[in-house]
Amino acid sequence: MDLNKELKEMAKIRKDGPNKVFTMYLNTDPSDPDQQGGKWKINFKNGMRNFEQYLEEDDNKEELKNFQLVKKKVEKFVHANELEFLKGVVVFATADEEVWFADRIQMRLKTEFFWQETPELGQLKKLQELFPKSGIILVQQSEVKIIESYLNEIQGTDSYELDLNTDDWRQKLGPRKGNTAMGPGSTNLQKDNFEARYEANQQRWYKKIAPKLDRRAKENNWEKIYIVGEADSSNELKKQMNKPVDEVIQKNMLDHEETKVLQEVFG
């Protein structure tokens, strides 16, 4: 989902008369203590029923008919996708189908329903602020991994390793095997030699990869940059980058699952 595009499009919409815009933010987060036992299904059913009852009591037959058309389409989407729900669901809809947007998202929402002249965009704007396009750079001595995320979802990953024979960085292909200088078969002497070499060369090494990271940030429009790694390597890499780094998290997470890294960064 391109949130910037959706917000611009939705901000243009206004419906007068009985053909209102339906907005739904639904919390479906299974890790939320308040959602145990599929409580979101009850909240969804009650929210739709309350609007229908209100319109029945108001005796606005045309508006009621429009809402029922929207309700039918939204229920169809929910029932068809509920097994694949993540943390939240966002829906915008009108009876004439001029407006229809429905998506599963990886962020917890506050359950809310609206039936009004314009889409209710408050929560989407807040998500845009909290989870912008971000580059998360994991660094561990002679290895660097990039995780690109948007709206708390992983957009892509890349890894680089330092070729100790050429002192240059190369993009890694395939699963991580560990640095040959520090692998399981390395002797204490080899490790000591690598540590000494790292101490002597880390500034020069990170100065070589920093332009690649700056270029990636510019090309992919990163709005936030995070560096995650042990203090010496993460702080040195920050110094070598031209792009401003929003936060340094002093924690070695290179071998952690990407989803765990996002949890650490975004909470």
Rank of each mutant, 00 (worst) to 15 (best):
Q155W: 09
Y160P: 06
V90C: 09
G122D: 06
K87A: 02
Y150T: 06
R176C: 12
I105N: 02
R176P: 10
I147M: 08
L164P: 01
Q36M: 07
F77H: 08
L151W: 00
L55N: 06
E148D: 04
Q106Y: 13
F77Y: 15
Q123G: 08
S142I: 01
Q155D: 00
H79A: 12
K125S: 14
L162D: 06
G47C: 07
K87P: 01
L151P: 02
R170C: 07
R170D: 07
F67A: 06
V78C: 08
E82A: 00
Q106K: 14
D163Q: 07
S149N: 02
G174R: 11
W40N: 01
Y160V: 03
W100M: 09
A102E: 08
L127A: 13
K133M: 03
E112Y: 10
E120L: 11
P175V: 12
Q36P: 00
P33A: 09
K126R: 10
G38C: 08
E62K: 15
K145I: 08
E75S: 15
T118E: 13
K61E: 13
D168M: 05
G156T: 04
E148G: 04
K45W: 02
F131K: 01
I137T: 00
P132K: 01
F85Q: 02
A80S: 15
K76Y: 14
N50K: 12
Y150G: 01
V91R: 02
I136Y: 06
Q171S: 12
K45Y: 03
P132T: 02
W115L: 11
F85T: 05
D96Q: 07
D96R: 05
F67S: 05
N66Y: 12
E52R: 14
E82G: 00
K177Q: 13
P119N: 11
R176E: 13
D168S: 06
K126N: 11
I146N: 09
D59H: 09
Y150R: 07
F44S: 05
Q141R: 12
E75K: 12
E82Q: 13
L173G: 04
S142M: 09
D58Q: 12
K39Y: 06
E82C: 01
A102V: 04
E153N: 08
E143A: 15
K133P: 00
M107F: 01
I42T: 15
H79E: 12
I154T: 14
K65I: 07
T94R: 02
F51Q: 03
R108C: 05
E75F: 09
L138G: 10
L121F: 07
D167V: 05
I136G: 02
D32S: 02
L83N: 15
K126M: 05
N152M: 11
G47F: 03
N43L: 09
K87I: 03
G174F: 07
V90H: 12
E84A: 14
F92C: 05
M107H: 02
W169D: 08
E62M: 14
P119W: 08
I136K: 05
S149D: 01
I147G: 04
E57V: 09
E112K: 11
E148C: 03
R108T: 14
H79R: 09
F101A: 03
P119H: 10
Q116H: 09
D103E: 15
G38W: 07
K76R: 14
F44E: 05
T166M: 08
T157F: 04
K126L: 13
K177C: 06
Q36K: 14
G88K: 11
L124S: 08
G178H: 13
V70F: 10
E148N: 10
Q53W: 00
D158L: 08
E82Y: 10
K145S: 10
F77W: 13
E117Y: 12
